[in-house]
Nucleic acid binder design. Sequence first.
DNA 1: ATGCATAAATGATATATGTCAAATAAATTA
DNA 2: TAATTTATTTGACATATATCATTTATGCAT
Lengths: 231, 231
Amino acid sequence: MPGKNTIETCENCPVKWENFNHLTQAEIKLVNDNRYEATFKKGEILIKQDSPSSNALFLASGMAKSYYEGINGNNFILGILLPGRLIMGPGAFVNSRYAYSVSALTQVQACFINFDIFRYLIKVNGEFAESLLQDISLKAFRSHIRMVNLAQKKMAGRLAEVVLNFSDEIFKADEFDIILSRQELGEMTNMVKESVVRILKEFEDSGVLSAKSSVIKILDKVKLRQISEKG
Amino acid sequence: MPGKNTIETCENCPVKWENFNHLTQAEIKLVNDNRYEATFKKGEILIKQDSPSSNALFLASGMAKSYYEGINGNNFILGILLPGRLIMGPGAFVNSRYAYSVSALTQVQACFINFDIFRYLIKVNGEFAESLLQDISLKAFRSHIRMVNLAQKKMAGRLAEVVLNFSDEIFKADEFDIILSRQELGEMTNMVKESVVRILKEFEDSGVLSAKSSVIKILDKVKLRQISEKG
DNA sequence: ATGCATAAATGATATATGTCAAATAAATTA
DNA sequence: TAATTTATTTGACATATATCATTTATGCAT
């Protein structure tokens, strides 16, 4: 199944990062000339935490998760990664180590682009620099909200929040295959898998959603939102 | 006590933000011409979450805390703010709202500088843009570590971590006045004030530190570090 | 299809942490 | 200084959540 390159050129890539629109023809050619595609099977690691970081990453197709490998092997899933979005941790500008790992949730086609290209573009193209700052700020903003939610909500609220996020941001649908295992849902919401199961069952019993194995169908979004917001 | 301006010019400000070193004379003059000083008493609010954001902030003297006002009035302290460091939330590049509040922990002298100046400097000065990206990345990196710590450590580990942080990063000493109340220490470590008291007592009983009201003296840093790392 | 590995579900129990009420201590104001 | 407020400490108890053991279901390879 791993295949040949799927993308001819960055310029008219169907999942082009929108910030590349700030680049000149020559600049985007530079990006294109310095990118490397690779294919990964489900479960394979694209980026390993703590290893020397030298590349930013884009998904051409498929889905991945970013996660932090924490205290005694306990993972903490930071987010779900989709095509069209820049994947570049703070390591690029901090300590040249990847701050988190990334692994494929499905078969994935990925483009790697060296940081040096980014650093060069930041210096020569103010519009691009600003758009990158916007991108990074948005990520910081979200992670900040997430931290508070994790800290202040109880289990049901946290899980409701994640389910809503899948519905609103990732699949844009009320019924979807949530790809993550119960274990992984726990790693996103900071609870053990048994608790995920129990709360999902509570949601089913109260008619908020149905969850047949990995297929989630939201039945009462208003209520789900209430649960998420009340904590 | 509120007084006159303490700072004549940014250029030789004793607590100048190091990234301003990337600016030209003309650019730093621009910053200087567009800054506004103000004095705040202990407890006063410098920045209010959700209000329209238009300024970055530096402390000329004193200490402040940044905090998120969360679910039913529950505060979550994000960090301790010191002179010489840029205080600019993601709101600047996201939604033009302050993402968090800032209030004075001591008497504080502050400089406000409009975002527009920053945005202009990013566009015209690539070195400055890159240094700002570094600054923001470092903050993201820290907040990211903090999130995982909060999620994966038990109370003792979380409190140990905060005490170490005060010792290593803020006061650079083993004995210091931790300025925060037990309530606030709880807001930093995500526990109730009663738990802070109990764990501090545990630390005292086991000879790790002494805590006479707000004066903390670390007696066994190795052990404290172990507690922090083991979780 | 059959068996094997992995994931999900369930129940009983243990533990961490929060809640509430009251007592003491410290800080502030009169 | 006394009076009053505010912060800290303590103990008894309630609750949320984790842990562990076991069963059931699901997916995958032969």
